[in-house]
């Protein structure tokens, strides 16, 4: 892969910038993901069940 990129003139800079930016976003999201407590997750994932009324009509 590295060899192929090296042969495309000027491509290396754009690819490396692109990958670095993505890596940054991905690491930030991953760090947050792992630091989230179980209680917070449960609370957030239950949000759709807090609405009221005739949503639970059985078919």
């Amino acid at each position: 892969m590295g060899k192929m990129i090296g042969f495309v003139e000027g491509a290396d800079v754009y690819l490396i910038i692109a990958l670095l930016i993505f890596l940054m976003v991905f690491i930030l999201a991953a760090v947050y993901m792992f630091s989230l407590s179980k209680q917070q997750c449960t609370e957030l994932s239950n949000l759709p069940f807090q609405s009221s009324n005739n949503e639970n009509n059985e078919e």
Binding site: F26, A29, A30, M33, L36, C41
Partner: peptide, 9 residues
């Protein structure tokens, strides 16, 4: 829910 965060971004 954790996966949804990583998945979204």
């Amino acid at each position: 829910y954790k996966l949804s965060i990583l998945h979204f971004w």
